[in-house]
Design a binder for these strands. Structure first.
Length: 213
DNA sequence: CTCCCGATAT
DNA sequence: ATATCAGGAG
């Protein structure tokens, strides 16, 4: 995608949604970290449904260890991959207490050390909690970047590196949210709604769905 | 690469 | 019935 088109791409998304935020619900950094770990291969709606009750009683790593792994499983059993997620969240909470004073670290190297936290989750926490200009390439951003021609790459990391290069200011802080929301509601995996897409004319997607069913 | 793994939309 | 959902670990 040409440089001017990239600017126009984000200008249009920003015009519609001036201050995009995550749709995951949380009250502090620790809850944000847990919510993002739970959101792997699951919908935000499904995660929020479970964390609403969980976070009413669990607000810190101490609270989580008091609840225990089996107690946590009861809360998150409606989410996919709940066995490994419960195990990771307990281990992650222990590590926060043992090595970080119970607080969520700000740097990627420390975040990725935590069980269940990979590069994408680390980038989300850095952006949402600490205002870092990171690009968390999840399934939506990977699809939208490749499909539109904004940043093509064979792996999430390759797409992230390209986004680092092509996304201009003043859009770098919000870019990952604009892309994810666009992917969730317009540029969807199954049935992309190109007829109401704000950036369709800037897009390289060949088989556009330009008619409304 | 495979496994994990329930809810929802199509 | 099956694809998809804010992926990560072995």
């Amino acid at each position: 995608m040409k440089k001017d088109d990239v600017f126009e791409f984000f200008r249009r998304l920003a015009e519609e949604n001036p201050s995009p935020e995550t749709e995951l619900e949380f009250g502090n950094h620790y809850q944000l970290l847990v919510a993002v770990v739970l959101s792997a291969q699951a919908t935000d709606v499904g995660v929020n449904k479970a964390t609403r009750k969980l976070f009413a009683e669990v607000k810190s790593p101490q609270d989580m260890l008091e609840l225990g792994e089996e107690g946590l499983k009861e809360h998150i059993k409606s989410i996919g991959l709940f066995n490994s997620k419960a195990s990771n969240v307990i281990a992650l909470s222990e590590m926060l207490l043992a090595e970080h004073g119970g607080k969520v670290p700000e740097d990627r190297d420390a975040l990725v050390e935590l069980p269940g936290v990979g590069r994408k989750t680390a980038n989300v926490v850095m952006n949402c909690a600490f205002g870092a200009e990171t690009f968390a390439v999840d399934t939506h951003i990977f699809r939208v970047s490749n499909r539109t021609g904004l940043a093509k790459g064979k792996t999430p990391l390759a797409v992230e590196k390209k986004l680092e290069k092509v996304v201009p200011q003043p859009f770098r802080l919000g870019a990952h949210h604009w892309l994810i929301l666009h992917g969730r509601y317009v540029c969807k995996a199954r049935k992309p709604e190109c007829w109401r897409c704000q950036v369709a004319e800037l897009c390289s997607y060949k088989s556009k769905n330009l008619s409304e069913d």
